[in-house]
Design a protein around this nucleic acid. Structure first.
Length: 203
DNA sequence: GGAATGATGTACT
DNA sequence: GTACATCATTCCG
């Protein structure tokens, strides 16, 4: 696997596009988090788009609330929420400010800070470190305190190094009960680091 | 005030 | 494949 020497931080214009476009283009980009413990990063291999309209599965579907407020923030702001009382999921707001769109990052290929990531998650196979939305949040040291923080500057950000991800598979989203049929999940087909659950379900 | 519900992960059969 | 931990948010009365 090659790494380009040049990488650039994604700016507001990248996230200002529609959620599906952002979700697709985030594949291959690097999610990076710098803490006092060290720097951790991973290459994004699985995302899901959640829309502002016509998407009952989106947290913004019923309008703006205190929980989902970050989805309505300027594009490039983190939306982090707790799920099942146990885990947290990491999203980025997209589209026009106030619209209520976001992209959920579901899986990473761990890159830098592997030791620290293992410590946070327990001694594990690299494929088990970030292969799920709750896992990657834990591995990178993210949490609810990052909700509402901008990714455009500061210790948490997304970088692009023009890595070629190859074939992208587009499927239905995982783990939702509404709008199960919308093709809004984007997966790097060749990656062994994606979440394991299948999008295919009998209906 | 009370109850239902999850964009999950892990362990176990 | 199924069971369940665990709690903030949301919705209803």
């Amino acid at each position: 696997m090659t790494r380009s020497p040049r990488s650039r931080r994604l700016g507001g214009e990248f996230f200002a596009r529609s959620a599906p476009a952002v979700a697709r283009d985030l594949l291959g980009c690097l999610l990076v988090h710098q803490t006092a413990q060290g720097l951790c990063s991973g290459r994004i291999v699985e995302t899901e788009a959640y829309l502002a309209e016509g998407d009952p599965a989106s947290h913004s579907h019923a309008g703006r609330t205190s929980r989902n407020a970050s989805m309505f923030e300027r594009p490039g702001v983190a939306y982090v929420y707790r799920i099942y009382g146990v885990h947290c999921c990491f999203n980025v707001s997209t589209g026009r400010e106030g619209r209520g769109e976001a992209v959920l990052v579901r899986a990473l290929e761990p890159l830098r800070g592997l030791e620290l990531q293992r410590r946070r998650r327990g001694a594990l196979d690299p494929r088990a470190l970030c292969s799920g939305p709750g896992k990657l949040v834990q591995a990178l040291g993210l949490g609810l305190e990052h909700d509402g923080r901008s990714l455009l500057s500061g210790p948490l950000g997304i970088w692009c190094d023009d890595h070629d991800v190859g074939d992208v598979e587009i499927t239905a989203r995982i783990g939702i009960t509404k709008a199960r049929d919308l093709p809004l999940r984007f997966v790097v087909r060749a990656s062994p680091f994606v979440s394991r659950r299948s999008a295919m379900r009998a209906r």
